[in-house]
């Protein structure tokens, strides 16, 4: 593996509600090298987005507790001052969210919105920032960039707005792009366009990318490695192909087979019984145990770490792992 760009250790996040602190995510460990593409997959309540937002401390600070370490090139993001954090956000690590209509300011035109981060992080002046904004629109393949740069968000289609968001994100040539469900609000054909764009940008700019999605298919087309999360924990980490060849965790297995198949006329779909436990009602031992077809007697009360599974894989389950060593 290349140099570690990002090293997340024992990340745990909880939120304050009027019923006290509620754990959202725990035991998150992963590393990311330069140029890596990591996919984080999970269903609602799995904690995938919470994890992503914590990397940049984007939660409301008053009501959030983040523990563990997020080492960005050796420095702990969780310990940075506000100023240092500001420096990091946007310039070294950038983010793209699901719904561009809520992340773009409706009263500013595209040039101003792209220019903002250029002015903040690179001290560019108006005219230079504008030129760069047009360049960036070209990069994200918005046709007729010199004219569209004066448009306001409502004049763009959903796909174009997401392209603008990506242009803003890559404006300062970040080392890492975190894309949180970037195509969920888009049509299938537009989704394919956006993913193609991200793929090209990653190659051209040499960025690392963390792609967060509920769609295992989408992630598998893009990422090299996948981290599957369930009920607030990573439960399997594996190279994409290996994961699909033999999912080691019964949940990953269930998730893969539950994707409706485009290649056969199945009349009954395989399902995972039950539903995801709420954060306050997570089982004590293995959190998937109550739904697991392979559960054994001690699954419900043994808390497992991620176990080494060979081939760069790790899994929080003993089903396919004989030599039970925790990942270092």
């Amino acid at each position: 593996m290349t140099d570690k760009l990002l090293d997340v250790r024992d990340l745990a996040v909880s939120f304050r509600t009027d019923r006290g602190w509620i754990p959202a995510v725990d035991s998150v460990n992963f590393t990311l090298g330069e140029g890596d593409a990591l996919g984080i997959v999970g269903e609602s309540g799995s904690g995938k987005s919470v994890t992503a937002l914590s990397l940049l401390r984007l939660h409301a600070e008053r009501n959030t507790r983040i523990e563990g370490q997020v080492l960005w090139r050796g420095r702990d993001v969780l310990k940075l001052s506000r100023g240092q954090l500001q420096q990091l956000r946007g310039s070294e690590i950038a983010m793209v969210f699901q719904d561009p209509i809520h992340t773009l300011n409706p009263v500013l035109n595209i040039a101003d919105q792209i220019g903002e981060s250029l002015r903040i992080h690179q001290g560019m002046t108006g005219a230079a920032a504008r030129r760069r904004a047009i360049e960036l629109l070209d990069t994200v393949r918005i046709p007729d960039a010199a004219r569209r740069v004066n448009d306001y968000p409502h004049q763009l289609s959903g796909g174009q707005r997401q392209r603008v968001m990506i242009a803003i994100a890559i404006a300062c040539q970040p080392k890492l792009l975190i894309a949180d469900e970037p195509t969920t609000a888009l049509d299938v054909t537009v989704q394919a366009q956006i993913m193609e764009l991200l793929r090209q940008l990653r190659a051209d700019l040499g960025m690392s990318v963390i792609l967060i999605s509920h769609d295992l298919g989408l992630v598998s087309e893009f990422a090299d490695r996948v981290m599957v999360m369930y009920a607030g924990q990573p439960i399997e980490m594996a190279p994409v192909d290996a994961l699909f060849d033999l999912p080691l965790h019964p949940y990953s297995d269930g998730l893969i087979s539950a994707i409706p198949d485009l290649d056969s006329d199945l009349d009954r779909l395989p399902t995972i019984a039950g539903s995801i436990p709420e954060p306050t009602r997570r089982p004590a031992g293995c959190r998937f145990a109550p739904r697991c077809p392979h559960q054994k007697a001690d699954c419900r009360n043994t808390v497992l770490p991620m176990l080494e599974a060979g081939g760069g894989r790790a899994v929080r389950c003993t089903l396919h792992v004989t030599d039970k060593r925790a990942v270092a």
Binding site: T189, L216, D241
Partner: peptide, 23 residues
């Protein structure tokens, strides 16, 4: 055809050309 090609799926060996433009 384009709609089918655009569906993301695991192990799609050959990446079909992406349909440009919008509705």
């Amino acid at each position: 055809r384009a709609l089918l090609d655009a569906v993301p799926r695991a192990r799609k060996r050959q990446r079909p050309p992406v349909l440009g433009g919008e509705v």
